[in-house]
Nucleic acid binder design. Structure first.
Ligand code: MN
Ligand code: MN
Ligand code: MN
Ligand code: MN
Lengths: 161, 161
DNA sequence: CATCATAGTTAGCCAAGGCTAAACTATTTG
DNA sequence: CAAATAGTTTAGCCTTGGCTAACTATGATG
């Protein structure tokens, strides 16, 4: 029964070198940490960006509109608004529409800008509009400043091709 | 006190059309739903991919190695392994190293391939190696098949520039 | 101006994904 | 072969972000 794969607990000494190696442990861990950290702020950014967009395009940001656009229940939105308020990003009075604080406005603007760069980049690459919108909504939170700058440059050169 | 912004609950009738409009409600909601759905599978995919990589490069996948590479406690890994087992992705016996099931192997291979396409695309774009690795780790889960195909094509044309 | 549809809130539930501390097992080593 | 060390598991805690159901407030309308 020694061909049961569940055998050794300690590493085997005979590890033959393979094609492309794993990154060093520390660097590898930092990759995943970056992802976890992006996920912490991701939803906050999307809410604040959406609230900013609703204020721009619809004059006001109502919880019901946020809920239908997010595809989420009103209770979920209500709870999130409390959090945004505690974080100093929005102003709200019970049963009234929302507004962004200075800090919230800044986050909305930054998020919208980053989102647009990613979206336009994907379209410049040749991705269809609907797909580009879906992919950009998730990708935007994982794009570093370095990559963002390169995306923007690429899009510009494509526009006057 | 009517210049208090927290005023109307219902939408105002005078909504002037602005620059680029919001997407239709249904489509907008589907964007966020796609992101939430990606987040459900994301971590699973990363674990399975990592386990596959450890089996390839290190001959075995030990919980302690997963923990240090994920940058997470061993308890977290232990709990996750139980979940992966329940999902039919890994085989494990108490205190022994892990192995992938058929289904787990398939997921690992698919994830690794997608990850590589995104990573190589970013490098082809001109992003530095370290940044490309960080961004790819998050982006990979939000890239549609359509976008992936375009990324792959772009990378190939750049390689024999 | 009373009613009622719409909007917002609250309470209580759940799963996922982190953590620490403590208990347990396997392997190596003296 | 006993002890020490390294690895694994379990218990119990926490936050986030979903949900439903029940309740409350607003404002449009008859
Ligand atoms: Mn966005
Ligand atoms: Mn987003
Ligand atoms: Mn990956
Ligand atoms: Mn990943």
């Amino acid at each position: 029964m020694s061909n049961d794969p569940h055998f050794s607990q300690r590493p085997s000494k005979t590890s033959l070198q393979s094609g492309d190696a794993l990154p060093p442990i520390e660097q590898h861990a930092r990759q995943y940490e970056a992802v976890r950290s992006a996920h912490e702020t991701e939803l906050i950014e999307d809410y604040v960006e959406l609230i900013g967009d609703l204020l721009l395009h619809r004059e006001e940001a109502r919880a019901a509109d946020i809920a239908s656009r997010m595809g989420v229940s009103q209770a979920t939105v209500s709870k999130m608004i409390r959090r945004l308020n505690e974080l100093g990003l929005v102003t709200n009075k019970p049963y009234r529409s929302l507004f962004l604080t200075q800090q919230g406005q800044a986050m909305a603007d930054a998020s919208r800008q980053r989102h647009h760069i990613v979206l336009h980049f994907l379209r410049a690459l040749g991705v269809s509009d609907t797909t580009a919108r879906i992919d950009a909504e998730g990708m935007e939170h994982h794009v570093s400043d370095e990559t963002l700058a390169i995306m923007q440059r690429y899009t510009e050169t494509q526009e006057n091709r």
